[in-house]
Design a protein around this nucleic acid. Structure first.
Length: 101
DNA sequence: AGCTTGACTGTGG
DNA sequence: ACCACAGCCAAGC
């Protein structure tokens, strides 16, 4: 598997409950600063197989970017259960964004 | 090999 | 705060 994919998986698994990361941020830490879209791809193909907390990944505006209604609803529930406040799909990044070392 | 398609992003109006 | 535009990169046809 590509190093990038492995990195993405490892980084996402590091996100603690109650925190979130953005696609671009993950891409950057994974070694591809412009690879936000690839992060999306990894989530699609690997989230189940590797049991990833995909719901802790949102876009740079601090909003949930999912198109599918059911999946979206599920994500909101997961996040709220971890104590994250969500205002109509949007999250306060200042407050909940995770910053790895 | 060329084109389309995303759970994206930063900039500018 | 909202919208339009232009980069971005890999996978699927």
């Amino acid at each position: 598997m590509k190093p990038f994919t492995e990195n993405v998986i490892r980084i996402i698994k590091q996100i603690p409950p109650g925190k979130v990361m953005t696609y671009g941020q993950i891409a950057k830490f994974a070694g591809s600063p412009r690879g936000a879209r690839q992060v999306v791809r990894v989530l699609h193909s690997m989230s189940k197989k590797y049991n990833l907390p995909w719901f802790r990944v949102i876009n740079s505006k601090g909003e949930i970017a999912i198109r599918d209604e059911e999946t979206l609803a599920a994500q909101i529930i997961f996040l709220e259960e971890e104590g994250i406040e969500i205002e109509n799909k949007s999250i306060d990044l200042k407050k909940y964004q995770y910053h790895p070392e």
